[in-house]
Every structure is written in structure tokens, then in C-alpha cells.
Design a protein around this nucleic acid. Structure first.
Lengths: 171, 171
DNA sequence: CAGGACGGTCTGCTGACCAGACCGGATTGA
DNA sequence: TCAATCCGGTCTGGTCAGCAGACCGTCCTG
């Protein structure tokens, strides 16, 4: 493992997790995967990061089994594997904490259980069903804390309309 | 914010959260805080990291209100604030994912609800009480996936005995 | 078959991380 | 009382990772 990305001697699953997803940009890439982003150029546009780093991160994620490279209509696509999808609760919990800490006007995004239309509570469980729905059963929409000056490019616009989590952004 | 630590233009609470706790070592420092570590030298020993970086991370965590600097018996101590303690669900979720991905022999650490003695399920809720207990109600102990060659220094030994989460390591 | 979109790689620079030296104040022991 | 040690840092020089931007091969399209 590359220097600066491992935590030697830590007998701890949090350290192991961070060796897989703790590098800069990695969790944001995975978040975009949940939001339906699949193509190299779309990650690039939406995350506004360096191509070299994006390329390296995607390769590492494929290598560690969190993403799968698929070819669709001559285009490369990066799709979450089961391991990658299993990260959803952690991503959701971090997002909720970020809302609470940095968004006094309320959540930036709201997630609802699509089956029953009920908004999730902060723990990620559906108050109507009493269980924690998997990401593919969720619908997301902007909340009261979302930016008043949103970005204009088509990617961001598409991601602001209410949509199903994990549904591909492009047909 | 220092270059390389921010995510400009991201109207996303996950990005904001990562600006606060996404740097290398930061989440491991906070994990140690939950485990009762409070002193500079103890973090240093247990995490085996550079003093300069530890110093910078602690200062930033104090500055962002996740830790509080306290003086106890002439010694500096770093203690979680309410904001810091609110990070527990995210830390727990990431740890559970790390267990699932990297520890085929079972969890490295097991958390139980101290009130009723029941082990938590993967979502962090107590199956007996039906709710998600806060960290101060939890007891931790090594699980079947913990290392067979554990580290020998007193810090690590102390952290391997069953103990209450958030309870100070030193009296 | 020319042009552009796509999915990268390469390059030179800058800033972050590293180990280890150093340091001042407080406590402890002789 | 004074030296030694512990504690909680700061400083330094070297290395590595992230950055913007140039470049490049492949595929599709008009």
C-alpha cells in the first residue's frame, strides 16, 4: 500500500476501513456513485478534481472491489459492487453529522423511503416501517439547507431534482 | 482552510463533514477519544504517528469544537465535546463496514449495551431495547477477529480489557 | 476522413507528511 | 536546592502526494 495511506499496527477495523476509503476524494466519489454518477467525465465535472487523482482513486476502488468497471455502449462505467453499496450506512451517518454541524438551516438533502414516502430519521431508519431501508429503496431531494446559489451545469441540475438513490444519471 | 483539505463548490454535508474530520489520522484520533485516550503522549504512543501532525490535528479539532482542551493536574487533556460525541454513529458504521470487509474471522471489537448486557447489531441498535444507545451506555471488548499478536505496551493492553466507552483511560 | 468527445497519462510545481532533533516548563528525586 | 526526567509541544530537512494543465490514443459521428 502506498506510503501515507496505511495505518500500520492498528488492529482496528476503522483503520482498515480508512485504508480503503480514507484518502482525499474517495468518499465523495462513492457518494456520487450512490447518486447515479458512473462516467469518468461526470465524476470529473461534478467533483471538480484533478484527472490524475480521479483515475488513481477509481483504479484503487476497482482493485479493492468497491467498484466494478463495466463497458456500456463503448463507454467505461464505474458501478458500485455489493461491498461498495454496504458503505451506505457509514456515508449516511457522516452526512447527517455534517448536516447537524455545518447546516443551521436544516439538512442539505433529505432521504425518504420510497415504498411509503416517509422521510428517514437521523439514524437512517424509516419511522413508518421501523426498519433501516437499503439505499435502493430511498428517494433523495434537496432540503431547506441546500445552497441558494446552486451550480448550473447539467450534472448538478439533474442531481437536484428528486430522484431514486443508485439510479443511473444517464439512461 | 488549508489547501488540500477543502472541497470547494460542494453543496454537500458529506463534503463539509470531511473538511472537518477527513484528514489523515483525524478519525483515528477521535476513535481513541471515545476509547478514553485524553493525553498527547497517549495518542502518540497508541497511534504511532508524527508529533507535528498530532499537534496540528488536535489544534484543528479544538478549533472546530469537536474537542475541548482541559487541564487536569497540570496535564493537558483533550476531551470530546457534544459535537464530537455526535460523531459516534458515523464512526461505528465505518467500523462495522471495516469489520465486514477486512475481518473474515468476525468483528475485531464488540460493543454491548451496558444497561442490559446485549450485543449491538450492525446498525448500532440494541436488539433488547429496540433503540440506538448513545456511546456512554456502551461497553466494548475484543471480538474473535482481534489480532492474535497484540501490541504489548500498557496503552494497548488497557484498551483490550472490557471497558466502558468514553471512560477515561487514566484515573 | 476530419473533428470532437472520451478516458485517460505525463510533467513540473507546491504543499502536506514524515522521522527525528530540539526546547521550555513542571514535577520528581537526591 | 539542584539535577534529571517527563510532558507537550515546535522546528528542520527530505520525501511523497495532489494540483493544473498539456498531451495522447481510441472511438464515434457528420
Amino acid at each position: 500500500m502506498a506510503l501515507g495511506t496505511d495505518y500500520a499496527n492498528q488492529d482496528c477495523s476503522l483503520a482498515k476501513a480508512l485504508e480503503l476509503v480514507g484518502e482525499r476524494w474517495t468518499l465523495l466519489i462513492l457518494r456520487d456513485c450512490f447518486f447515479g454518477v458512473r462516467r469518468f467525465s461526470d465524476f470529473l465535472t461534478h467533483l471538480d478534481m484533478s484527472k490524475a487523482v480521479l483515475s488513481q482513486r477509481l483504479s484503487r476502488l476497482v482493485e479493492s472491489g468497491l467498484l466494478e468497471r463495466a463497458r456500456s455502449g463503448g463507454r467505461e462505467e464505474y458501478v458500485l459492487t455489493e461491498s461498495g453499496r454496504a458503505l451506505w450506512p457509514a456515508l449516511y451517518a457522516l452526512t447527517q453529522w455534517g448536516d447537524a454541524q455545518t447546516s443551521p438551516g436544516g439538512p442539505r438533502r433529505i432521504f425518504a423511503h420510497a415504498q411509503c414516502g416517509t422521510d428517514l430519521v437521523v439514524t437512517g431508519s424509516c419511522p413508518a416501517c421501523g426498519r433501516v431501508p437499503p439505499p435502493e429503496e430511498l428517494e433523495m431531494r434537496p432540503g431547506p439547507g441546500s445552497s441558494a446559489q446552486p451550480r448550473a451545469h447539467p450534472m448538478s441540475v439533474a442531481l437536484r431534482s428528486p430522484r431514486r438513490v443508485l439510479e443511473p444519471l444517464r439512461p
